[in-house]
Every structure is written in structure tokens, then in C-alpha cells.
Computed example of a mutant assay.
Amino acid sequence: MAENILEKLKQTILDFDEDAALDAANEALAAGVDPVEAVGALADGLNELGDKFERMEVFLPEIMLASDAFKNALSVLEPEIKKRNTEGQKAIPVVIGTVQGDVHQVGKDMVATFLTTAGFDVHDLGVDVAPSRFLEEAKKLDAKIIAAASLMSTTRPVQKDLIDFLEAKGVRDNFIVLVGGGVVTQEWADQIKADGYGQDAIATVEIAKKLLHVA
């Protein structure tokens, strides 16, 4: 039963079907499926589409539709995940966004979701986020981590701008800055003195936990 529902969730992503994704997410919770496993099935669908995108078998409009389906399902699953993760403890706040000038969101959404499933209190600022807004929201939420994604070579320098901005404001040491995205490498992260680099969503969660010394 659970396996069928998980497969159905994945298929809604591959079919770019927002309504079906919402229905499948509700079905998963009603059937007692672990919401983290449900998100994993959705992620499998997005990863498969990502491979197809690289092979030019699908294109950006389809990826955006799949992202919308993912968000629909997540709107049902995420509250349950947060409830489970925050019972009896205060979740660590994280601010995440795609940097200024960049409107790509699928990869960033994946990272935000996996951080949520890992128990972080994730505040997604969306796309085209200026360095000043990253700082404003991080201070407001008392965030420990700022995660900045870039998916375009022309916007990658904004990750450096963010770190330079934090240094100029005298608050660089107050935050762990993680960078990632399709055009980002460990070499780049080292060059701009980021605290960590996430090659993918799972790696980002692991480096966040390591830097915060949490299990």
C-alpha cells in the first residue's frame, strides 16, 4: 500500500500534475505513510526530471510545472514534518533563497525541503534575493544559517557580494553561510570564504549539521 502511494507521488511529479500531487499527499498522510518518505518520493521525481533536463528530454516550462506540483504536495506534508521535528525542542532557524538576479528555484526548493525534513526551521525567501534582504531576515529570525543558491554563472558573484556585505556590516561571524547551485563548486566556496558548500540537497543538510554540531 505505502509503496503504491510513494510511486504515485513520484509519478505526479513526472506528469507535472499539481492536483494529483495534492491528492496523493493527502492520501499518503491518511494512509499513515511517513511524510519524510513521501517527500523523498517527490524528490526522486524531481531528480529524474533533472536528469532528463540535462539530456534535453524536457525543458524549463516542464520543470517549472513539476516544481509547482512539488510545492502543492509539500503544502500538505511539510506541516506534519515540522510538527514531528519540533515537538519538545526549538528548531534551528535557517534563511534560504536564490541570489539577486537569479529566478531559478527548483534546486533551492529541494534544499529547503530536505533541511525541513532534517528538523530545521526553514524560512524560504524565494528568488532574486538581495544581500541586504538575506541579512534583514536572518537578524529578524535570529537565524544561525544563511543559505544562498545560484544557478547561473552571471549571478554566482552575488554569493560573494553577500559575504562581503555581511563583513561590511560587521556581522559575518554571526552566521554560517552555505552556498550551492548548479554553477557553484567547492573551489568557489573556498575562494569567497563561505562556511560550507552543498553539492546537492543531502550534502547541504549534512554540512549544516556538521557546522552546527547537531546529530
Rank of each mutant, 00 (worst) to 15 (best):
N26T: 12
H104V: 04
A149G: 13
L115V: 05
S153M: 05
A73L: 09
D17A: 04
G181C: 10
A201Q: 02
T12D: 12
A130C: 04
L29K: 13
A41F: 03
E137N: 04
L22Y: 14
L115N: 05
T12W: 01
A66P: 09
A20T: 13
F53R: 03
L9E: 12
E48R: 07
L151P: 00
T117I: 05
D19W: 01
N26K: 15
F70D: 00
S150I: 06
R55F: 07
G32P: 02
A203M: 00
I5G: 06
P157L: 13
M56H: 15
N72Q: 10
D15K: 13
K82Q: 08
K169A: 13
K139P: 06
L166V: 10
D142S: 15
A143Q: 02
Q186R: 14
E80A: 15
A194L: 02
L162P: 08
A91K: 11
D19Y: 10
K82S: 06
M1V: 09
K139H: 09
T116K: 08
A148Y: 04
G107W: 07
G32W: 12
M110Y: 02
E48M: 11
S75V: 02
V205F: 03
P61W: 00
V33E: 04
V58E: 01
F59R: 01
K169Q: 12
K169Y: 07
Y197P: 04
L77I: 11
G107E: 11
E7R: 15
L74A: 15
I5F: 11
G97T: 07
A91F: 05
A189P: 01
L178D: 06
V179A: 09
F175K: 05
V183Y: 10
P61S: 05
V129L: 07
H104E: 02
F114A: 12
K52F: 11
A73W: 11
F59L: 04
D142K: 14
R55Q: 14
L42K: 13
L141N: 03
G101I: 01
L151H: 06
A138I: 06
D34C: 10
L77H: 05
Y197T: 08
Q100E: 02
V171K: 11
I92S: 02
L74K: 12
E80D: 06
R55W: 10
P35C: 12
Q89N: 13
G196N: 03
M152C: 14
L141F: 06
A118H: 04
L151C: 09
A73T: 10
E7A: 14
